[in-house]
Design a protein around this nucleic acid. Sequence first.
RNA 1: GCGGGAUUGCCAGAGCGGUCAAAUGGGACAGACUCAAAAUCUGUUGGCUCAGUGCCUACAAAGGUUCGAAUCCUUUAUCCCGCACCA
Length: 823
Amino acid sequence: MNFDFEKIEKKWQNNWEKKKIFEVKEDSKKKKFYSLEMYPYPSGSGLHIGHAFNYVLGDIMARFKIMNGFNVLHPMGFDSFGLPAENAAIKAKSHPKIFTEEAIASFVKQQKALGLTYDWSRMVETHKPDYYKWDQWIFLKMFEKKLAFKKESAVNWCPKCKTVLANEQVHNGKCWRHEDTCVEIKHLEQWFLKITDYADELYEDINTLVNWPERIKIMQRNWIGKSEGTEIDFEINNKKWKIFTTRPDTIFGVTFMVISAQHPKLMEIVTSEQKKEVEKFLKKLTSTSEKDLADLEKEGVFTGSYAVNPITKEKVPVYAGNFVVADYGSGMIMAVPAHDDRDFAFAKKYGIKMKKVIIKENELIDSVSDKVEKPFPYSGKLVNSGEFTGLFSDEAKEHITKFLESKNLGKKVVNFKLRDWLVSRQRFWGTPIPIIYCDKCGIVPVPEKDLPVKLPENIKFTSERNPLIDNKGFTDVKCPKCGGKGKRETDTMDTFVNSSWYFFRYCDNKNKKEIFDKKKAKYWMPIDLYIGGAEHACMHLIYFRFYTKFLRDLGLTDLNEPAYDLFNQGMVHGEDGTVMSKSKGNVVDPLEIIKKYSADTLRIFLVSVASPDKDFSWSNTGIESMHKFVNKFINFAINIKKGNSSEKTESKLNRLIKEITEDLGEMRYNLAIIKLRQFIDFASEEKEISKKDLDKIIKLISVFCPYTAEELWSRIGNKEFISLEKWPEYDEKKINSKLEEQEKLIGSLILDVNNIIKIVGDKKKLFVYAIPNEKEVYKEAINQINKKTNLDVSVYSVSDKDKYDPENKSKKAKPQKPAVYLE
RNA sequence: GCGGGAUUGCCAGAGCGGUCAAAUGGGACAGACUCAAAAUCUGUUGGCUCAGUGCCUACAAAGGUUCGAAUCCUUUAUCCCGCACCA
């Protein structure tokens, strides 16, 4: 067989490219489908098998949709700003752009090899000024609306990345890029995006994402962390201080207060007598900050001040504590040691008194002792709570809050765990923040007409710090307001900014006048199917929702959400079942696989092992066998005689089309492939098949194996690209259930015969005794039975007088179960 | 600690109330072809019984719901993944 995969792949790649068949335009007459895989960071080590899996999943859907008449937008781009390229450049004393563009070229080459239906004319590269210009533009819009702002706060600093990180980029106290590196807490002035303004909407709209995986939604809900409670004013030194609590029903149990050690106004509370103690404590904190945060014991120190409980008017001591989060709520809490585990631990340690105010609902008030042996942090019935005694927690929460509201001492509020997004990075290879500092005018945004603020080409990585700082050509500018001396901001933006809206730019990537054309975006958006890994649940997948909502508020889109359908693919593990890693030596390189087998073999194998949302392990024998199947398919298509299809073939083919069409729509690629294989096993045994049916069969495989399909398609005499052909339709009427029924009967007969042979040993002749009306079924199948059993077959009806039946087996015959005799 | 998800035959992986001793692939074994091998094809692959439609034990473990459970519920165990002092 003359089928050189390498040549064929090149040939069709070229043909597709020359004819630009995957380039698309808006067409209001056609239904659109936006199929998107998360764009990669173009790392120097190239495309790995996980990328390949990701892209193939999306590509199969894209191809399926194209063939079903959709106008399919299937673009690809690169998240090409970022640290690895910068670090490589520092090492080689070069420019990150060089590394980045080399890496992109190699990515593109590999992606093209995979036979993907990308519209390359829409490629987006975030490190190019014509892209990041619009990052800056959005930043200015946010600045205008006070959503981009600068503030000093305690921030996460990764000593390895030498930059600050967003909350989302800190996992277990470590940097997301450096599992072995604890982040440090630094107090710095940094740029933030006010994502918290959208917290409630981001939280509530999760409910509209019906086609997102449940676990991603749960993760986002946890991350945004909406909780409803009460804000209460406590008086400290004649000033009101707010606290947030979800348990206002325990307010009679407050025996102390704790203010966060990081609270910016901590010192206002600290009395002069306690100042030394507090400062000692704070020092100790910074030295422990590098320890594993999770194991920190609850510690604190008395501030010297007392707070007045707004309801009981009791005076309770105020502590500074290490376990109170500074920027959640108001950074201060009311402590109820009898009903909270943490408060209990703290009170025990410092010998603070406790007061029981909640008991179990079924306990009697009088029978309860005042001693607190362990905290009871649940809802219950109030005791020792003045006029509220006897109420259940839920009603008490309401009544107490109303009471406070009536006295103007508190109110119902909603709080979120979500923090503002820290976007400043002290690194070179990112989007410059378009801000100029002027001694006279302060913070001045770069005027829109001056965008983009370009990264200089001519830079030197001399010291450890961001080379922008020492680049006078970059930093020294005139103030756009007063014309005086100004200095540019040298921090760049988090790369997650770039990826927060790239999917909009695909809709109109060459637009020089606007971020994108509203009409074009309206046509293509939202993303119909977004495929990527689950690791972005609380980073990219929150940010891109935030940006979409912001763009909507700018009037650039009507959408509340960028993607209503999200799919998380599983991980591809090494053959040993563990995560692929160089050190384990179990890495599979897609390029090598393509070379050894073919891109089609790789594609179809990747989606054949398991359901695409599940992790699966690479298998060398598995890909081997898939390659055999691809070859078998080719042999079948080339060698089968083109004539007429049997009724059985037609029946099976129509059922196959029906089922595969359903499976593909639901992304059950693995099941579709099984059915396709079974069909080919069957069809290979057929004498001939009609050209029309063969066409359909090749179309079915084309979504998995596009190169092979194109080649076969043209070899059997078709002119157009199969990639653009119409998906086959099935004819329900051709599905012959009678034939299917008969096949089942023959199958079970053969099973029985084999079973008997297993027991009694080899035989030569088979006599079948069917009940009269089934005789014909078996008669028609004589050849088939013979082929499968290698026996000389005779078929009788039980009522046949002249039948050969020496042991009188025929009397055992039943409907659907003929009697048999072997000799 | 909290919250998700998983647990199927030698392995991988379908199945998600009856048609299930459980698709499909890999592996293993046997057979056909061949001088032989590779490729290809066929069969077997829980146990017992047996010239077949039978019985038993089975889908992590134990209970439960049901006429009926791999499939639903409860508890337990193991594994994976997220969040971890958010008041």
